[in-house]
Nucleic acid binder design. Structure first.
Lengths: 316, 316
DNA sequence: TTGAAAGCGCTAACAG
DNA sequence: CTGTTAGCGCTTTCAA
């Protein structure tokens, strides 16, 4: 591939003039501009982006840290980010961690080594103390609320959302309520769910909380465990519509009627929830992703709360 | 951020020695290595990746061209790619085109400007003649079969798959069969569906083919159109399980029984299909993505066919 | 085993 | 308006 000096030579001008036409500077005579453009075209030349990034110190690329690359919730946030990135001319690099701390740090280092202008953290495994310093090297935006002033947030008030659901269930007369979660106690979101649960129902019996639920399969398993309990719940709050779908599936297989014998409510308003007529709380994760991207490119450190909404269907 | 010469100065060695310890070269005395490592650590130094990429001429990054960033099928391929990329230490950049030809070319140019080592094309809008030249600048792998020897393929034999489904439907006694598609005639996959249809049933009545179906919503609309036809189909082959779910939804709403009054079969074996007990043909798109990635990093131009499988459930 | 120096391809003062 | 030149931060001969 040709480089800028070759183009300069061929067009009979200096490299700076070529650079000027490349960057649409004024103060280039029409003749020279035309000549350069012609050679560029003839040679099928494209400037080397690494050289430009090196000199400019920025890459117009932002990374998105995602624990699992096959999870509905994180996919939605990714989609939100992608939606906005195209119109703003940014590239998005996906950084899957599997909640591996070293991997996460490795990705954050891409800020330090000038390979990423910013990073959106959809979910983290390191604690904030170790993450925050990286905000010195580039923009860091989180999809979880944090007080640290160095990082912007596009977040959901999960505690409020969980609380509202549990309160609603209680109001409907449910006293034996269970829920599922993805990760266990190490997850802030699980901790918030538990707090909201206790706030509403007083105590949480350990058998009414099932973790490691990601897929429909996991939902079926969770349903099996929960619905064969002596203290069988009359309502289950699932951490996703696919999981809710699995629970529904299992309930139906053992002739437990929804919503009469069992109320089910899921999260994220997925197609499967619509198909099965499952109630769901929509945290508007696409909007979260879009907002996170906006914060990043505006170099904003604002804390923006994205509203959630409960979608009532017939499973409750 | 510090740079290599600062590290060199501080450790009392030359930049080349620092470079050597950075790249784990031998022939560096233990004392110097230790000294350099200490300074690197003290200074919290990380080499600038752009400088390295510039000099090496490679970025360990590959791009994946995807038309829509909210489509189940393309998501699956992306997931396959991500699965493999992590273990091989590559970064993945997502390139959404919305089937915009200029955008697609812009992305392909990232090969030319040395910003991407390779590109995986999950679906394209430009013709091969204009795409193939870019294979001179980096690896290009397609998820659609093409004879061009310059590009590797991890592909599905869609024609065979469509044909098998239509033949099966015919065997089951269906003579009035409809199908849905995403893009219209400009899509190779639609063309293949039509060809398989004609091969099986002779002629295709235009009202039995509905395009622009992507979501469950679209499926409901398609169902409404199709099921109110004078020549109402007794079987519908949907281009995705969500679309199939929408059709199912509409059918149920007008008391058309599945499978008695209407057979439905979808694609890609999604949770919604499982929930609704819809038959589906699984093209194993995750495997397609994984294979595409393997081809890219092995710099292979092989044509690898990924087998599909028909999943029989009760909707047919 | 080490260092000096020549680039990689480009941008941006600075001096005309 | 245009060219010269000094880097950006790093790798890699080439000599020593």
């Amino acid at each position: 591939m040709a480089n800028i000096s070759e183009i300069a030579k061929l067009s009979g001008v200096s490299v700076s003039t070529v650079s000027r036409v490349l960057n649409h500077h004024k103060y280039v005579s029409e003749e020279k501009r035309a000549a350069v453009l012609k050679v560029i075209n003839d040679m099928n030349y494209t400037p080397n982006r690494n050289a430009i990034d090196l000199i400019r110190g920025e890459t117009k690329t932002i990374g998105i840290i995602i624990p699992y690359n096959n999870n509905q919730a994180f996919d939605q946030m990714l989609h939100g980010v992608l939606n906005k990135s195209v119109e703003k001319g940014f590239s998005i690099t996906v950084l899957p961690t599997q909640y591996n701390k070293e991997k996460e740090i490795e990705y954050l280092s891409m800020l330090k080594n000038k390979w990423l202008d910013g990073i959106i953290i959809t979910s983290r495994s390191n604690d904030w103390k170790t993450i925050v310093p990286y905000a010195n090297y580039g923009q860091v935006v989180s999809c979880e609320y944090t007080e640290h002033p160095e990082v912007g947030c596009a977040y959901i008030d999960r505690y409020a959302s969980y609380l509202e659901v549990f309160q609603y269930l209680k109001l409907k007369g449910h006293t034996t309520v269970a829920f599922t979660a993805a990760r266990g106690m190490q997850s802030v979101s699980t901790q918030q769910t538990i707090a909201a649960y206790k706030e509403t129902f007083g105590e949480l019996r350990p058998e009414h909380y099932i973790s490691d639920c990601y897929s429909m399969e996991d939902g079926i398993l969770a349903g099996e465990k929960l619905l064969n309990l002596h203290s069988r719940p009359t309502a289950i709050y699932a951490n996703g519509d696919e999981v809710a779908g699995g629970i529904y599936q299992y309930a139906r297989s053992v002739h437990i009627q929804v919503p009469d014998d069992l109320a089910i409510i899921g999260q994220e308003n997925q197609p499967i929830g619509i198909a099965l007529s499952l109630s769901s709380v929509d945290h508007q994760l696409i909007k979260v992703g879009e907002q996170a991207f906006e914060l990043i490119i505006n170099k904003s450190k604002d804390k923006v709360k994205i509203p959630y909404r409960i979608i009532h269907r017939s499973s409750i």
